[in-house]
Simulated assay, not measured.
Amino acid sequence: MPVRLDAQLRFPDPRDAPAEGLVAFGGDLSVARLRLAYRSGIFPWTANPVTWWSPDPRAIFDLDRFHVPRSLAKFLRKQPFEFTRNRAFREVVQCCAAAHEDTWITREFIDAYTRLHEEGDAHSIECWQGGELVGGIYGVSAGGLFAGESMFHRVPNASKAALVHLVEHLRARGFVLFDIQMITSVTRQLGAAEISRDEYLARLESAVRLECTFG
């Protein structure tokens, strides 16, 4: 059974959650609680009430096995986009919300992750074309973990291009674990894989001990 959270800053052991992953409900989306959640292998999914999840299996990108399809690589060699980091974080989150018809990225989530960004724990990659924001991705870092939250595109391949740029950046900064929570057809094409929750939590324990900075 999921645990009802109170004002105390704590989470139950996610290993005790069922496979679908509901660990707890309640609490808040404060910076401190979000930090603890990601370091515990848990993420929020709804705001009213707040629900906290750790599914089994868990989807990740192995940074050493990330796959760029030949057609995408050929397209990117034309350098159709410019990339920035953390230049338009809130706008990226808002665009991700708008891209999903039944979005979980509510105003409460946008405000909460913006606060997390202002504290240096949430980051974005922006993809620009002709001065317009056409794609992007955002997520949360903790030590050597990067937890991808959502991405969007307004022109073809923009979100994939942002993801490729992000993976290259994470490799360069020494990150070792790229969590994407759940696999999709798009991420599977790029090499995403599923691992057991136990394996994910073991990797996470090692990753968060590293002193990586997103930059």
Rank of each mutant, 00 (worst) to 15 (best):
V176H: 12
A202W: 04
Y200V: 03
V186H: 14
L201C: 11
Y200N: 03
A202V: 08
S206K: 14
E168K: 14
Y200L: 07
E199A: 07
C212S: 04
Q189S: 14
Q189W: 04
R203H: 13
A193L: 13
R173P: 06
M182C: 09
L163A: 02
Q189C: 09
I180V: 14
Y200P: 01
E205W: 04
Y200I: 05
S185K: 15
I183D: 11
L163C: 01
L190T: 10
L190F: 11
F178A: 08
T213C: 13
R197V: 00
A162D: 00
E211N: 14
T213E: 15
R203Q: 15
F175N: 11
V176K: 12
V164C: 03
A193M: 14
Q181Y: 10
H169T: 07
T184L: 09
Q189I: 05
A192H: 07
D198M: 03
A162F: 01
L201W: 08
R203C: 11
E211R: 15
L210W: 09
A192F: 05
A207D: 02
G174T: 11
H169A: 06
E205C: 06
H169Q: 03
C212P: 01
E194Q: 10
G191W: 06
V208P: 00
D198L: 10
H165I: 00
S185C: 08
H165L: 02
V208A: 03
C212G: 06
V164W: 01
T184A: 09
I195P: 05
S206G: 13
E199Y: 00
S206P: 00
A162C: 02
R188W: 02
Q189M: 10
H169M: 03
F178I: 05
E168V: 04
V164I: 05
L177H: 08
T213V: 14
L177Q: 09
C212D: 01
R173E: 12
L210D: 04
E205Q: 13
S196Q: 09
V186A: 13
L204Y: 02
A202S: 14
R209S: 11
H169R: 05
Q181C: 10
A193C: 11
R188H: 06
G191P: 03
S206C: 05
V176M: 10
F178P: 06
V208K: 07
M182D: 10
E205F: 06
R173M: 14
L204K: 01
